[in-house]
Design a protein around this nucleic acid. Sequence first.
DNA 1: TCAAGTTTTGAAGAAGTGATGAAGATTGCG
DNA 2: CGCAATCTTCATCACTTCTTCAAAACTTGA
Lengths: 229, 229
Amino acid sequence: MNSILIIEDERELVKVLTSYLEKAGYSVISATRGDSGLTLWQQKKPDLILLDLNLPGMDGLDLAREVRRHSQVPIIMVTARIDEIDRLIGLEIGADDYITKPYSPREVVARVKAVLRRVGAAQYTSQTLRIADLEIDLDAHTVQRAGQEMDLTPTEYNVLVTLAQQPGRVFSRSQILQAVQPDSVVFEGFERSVDAHIKNLRQKIEPNPKEPQYIETVFGVGYRFSKAG
Amino acid sequence: MNSILIIEDERELVKVLTSYLEKAGYSVISATRGDSGLTLWQQKKPDLILLDLNLPGMDGLDLAREVRRHSQVPIIMVTARIDEIDRLIGLEIGADDYITKPYSPREVVARVKAVLRRVGAAQYTSQTLRIADLEIDLDAHTVQRAGQEMDLTPTEYNVLVTLAQQPGRVFSRSQILQAVQPDSVVFEGFERSVDAHIKNLRQKIEPNPKEPQYIETVFGVGYRFSKAG
DNA sequence: TCAAGTTTTGAAGAAGTGATGAAGATTGCG
DNA sequence: CGCAATCTTCATCACTTCTTCAAAACTTGA
């Protein structure tokens, strides 16, 4: 999973952004000062930096320059002044994208996705989820373990993708049902069918289905994909 | 020297981009309407297309589909809406990159370079798609297996090209329908006709239509061209 | 340890999906 | 207009997948 460092002094904004980004499957760390942001970056080496330019403790541009001296990590710059963007673009700091305030959290998520996709895989067409020793190709709808392809049914595949997209997070049966078949209303009784799918899924992907290492049961709550992997 | 076709209706933008791209050593031609852009492409056969999706004269997506029926020329798509990119990527048209407005000319130049480097000296100029032991000549609209030419109907040909251009990737029936006839609205019932085309196509190109080795069925999802080949 | 509640499991019927051949509708062309 | 090629629709069959159920195994908290 990708991690994102937010450097932004408005705490309320940080909270909102964190929530949105986490929902999108990213892990988020944050700093409200420039200097502490730099330290955090050195320690955690996140996959992307979301950087407000107007910061206490250290100027955002200086921070970006410092980071660039050591790393090509993608940086998305945030500024309150739209007319500043043209100037920024002229600078030699290779920022990967720019956002002006005010912005919608959705837009930020979209930009983050876009930038990570851009720098990540050179090819835009192949989106694959690598988790533990599983490889899920979202375009091809295939799942492989150690090069071996596993033949899953549509529902099994959807359940797996749902869980694997946010490893460590617990999903209730009704959440899983909803993810698997969004249009239908979920009744109480139906939830038990998730059990059956999980069983079949484990049968297929777990080396030892009796002791699942990918899909864990959280008693009384639901299921989750193992974070440790 | 590489030539680039810009299809974009904002004349000011075209001017700026042209200037930047020419400075970078490319020769540039441009159109401000979709239909004239298509004509220009047919006449000049540029090495890359920079395509705004929101165009007068012809929808950008339809243009891209039409081009893809004849050529694998790299296409960079431009859209004003960041949140549209996710949708675009899911589309059956294989674009090589995506850019959102507003963008900096520098960024565009960088992307153009990157895409051309990626496709490199690839044979998109030959306009022949070689996959498994099929040979699809995009200029001549012919398909051969082991030197044997197969006689396909227009729709069968289009379905095959759509699938074969991105082997391994699954296409839903409605995506295939759209690729085959861009202008028509897609109703639920119509999707079944894709089955018929696939059947006929398999009858013609598969050595053993009962056990397809080129066109695979992905239960509950759609069809894909076998990646293994 | 026990009781209550929860999950796992295998099996079987119900529901859904794809393949196919043929017939009907449409299109393009002479 | 009439013909031929092509595309769409339809009914049917074959097959895959989903849901349900009941029994057994397990987990939890008192």
